[in-house]
Write a protein that binds this DNA or RNA. Structure first.
Lengths: 229, 229
DNA sequence: TGACATGGTGTCGGTTCGACACTAAGGTTC
DNA sequence: GAACCTTAGTGTCGAACCGACACCATGTCA
């Protein structure tokens, strides 16, 4: 199977920066390359776009195939088109970033055929291609976006404590926040539903659980409302 | 000249949303298509990416070739990849938006071989392909970005009055602003240099001219400073 | 039952923000 | 040259918002 075009054209790929949060750090999912170029190096999950799928679909397919990840928050990041970013031939890459609930995905990523691992964002190995640039851009975007869009919840399980939520913001923004002021702000958004449950199996007073009120958010979003932390 | 690949791949194009501001409105530059599909319809300036140029270079080349526009503020917007967005074949388009000083570019756009014209953003004709989606996305991005990045100046001549600057913000944001509060805010940024000149040939008291202090801005930018209006 | 760990709560001063109206200067007209 | 027209340019005040700050409550474990 091959195909002929009148003019040469770049190959088109997608690459994904998948963020997850554990107790310690904000982490990125990387896959170890098995083939040249950059065999043995860590790289972002990704691959070539097929003719019958959109870019978003290609990104989701690669996440599924390479990391066993489904149903995540996914957003287009930027398109990288340096002429020599791939030594084999011209490859333009449409990049995405994804936010996953790490606890739920840690296993599948690790048990996939290819070697996959989570790395703390300030302790990354050297990456293949221009993937370090892509990760940098993704972190910058995430830091900007988390302040005015409610995406922090995407990194947590459905039910979470306020302390967990605060930790998300502290890890993403890279700075400590005041507990009382933080709680005032999230309460002011009106987007948290207080549950009649508390966390389980902790060796201290158990914290109340909350959940994100997506329905209210979507209503407010239409009215041009801005979420702010 | 033709080329054969092992796997089929989408064609890759760039399209540009060029914004300009006149006395009345925020406008977008459109080109009338001469060939099918969508012959006779207005469309964004753009074309296919060549193998030896980056995406940014392709966007600038198309602006130069199709509209005679050079040296403008240019930023990547989004990459559109719906499977059927072009009826001929699969075409993925990396889109950009540009800000031009309209007075300086009105002529060159009009005298180009192809028919080109400026349209007010809330009075656009029907566009070819998915170009209406692209324009919508560009307007949304511009509205968001103008609030925290000093890009309003890109739409004005080097020397401008505070009233002109205020009009930029009013046109872009689509809402009137208070003159005194606006002046307080721009003064607070410390990014305007007050010149010893006033505007010429006006039938009333002449306003003082200002210019944007790019050097100071670049210093502050490195320190993570945020410009806000 | 005492020690330990985290949960959960309110005040106050400083800053910022938006609403608001008049005089100044220059050109034009009669 | 006097009156008029148009836009330039300037400050206050009350409300809302923001950040800094410390202690008691509740549950587990030894």
């Amino acid at each position: 199977m091959s195909v002929t075009y009148k003019h040469p054209r770049p190959a088109l790929a997608v690459d994904c920066v998948v963020f997850g949060l554990d107790e310690e750090d904000l982490k990125v999912l990387l896959i170890r390359r098995g083939v040249e170029p950059f065999a043995g190096r860590w790289a972002l999950p990704g691959g070539f776009v097929r003719l019958d799928e959109t870019l978003d679909e290609a990104a989701r397919r690669e996440l599924r195939e390479e990391a066993g990840i489904e149903k995540v928050y996914l957003e287009q990041l930027y398109t990288f088109g340096a002429v020599d970013r791939d030594p084999r031939e011209r490859v333009v890459s449409v990049t995405y970033y994804a936010l996953v609930k790490l606890a739920e995905h840690a296993v599948s990523a690790a048990t996939d055929a290819r070697e996959a691992a989570w790395f703390a964002i300030d302790d990354l190995p050297r990456l293949a291609f221009d993937h370090e640039d892509i990760v940098d851009k993704a972190i910058a975007r995430l830091r900007g976006k988390v302040r005015y869009a409610p995406i922090g919840f995407e990194l947590l399980p459905k039910k979470f404590t306020l302390t967990q939520l605060q930790r998300v913001y502290e890890r993403v923004l890279g700075q400590e926040l005041d507990k009382r002021n933080f709680r005032k702000k999230v309460a002011a958004t009106g987007l948290l539903i207080e549950l009649d449950e508390v966390e389980q199996d902790v060796a201290h007073r158990a914290a109340r659980l909350y959940t994100f009120d997506e329905k209210t958010y979507r209503k407010l979003e239409k009215e041009g409302f801005l979420f702010e932390i």
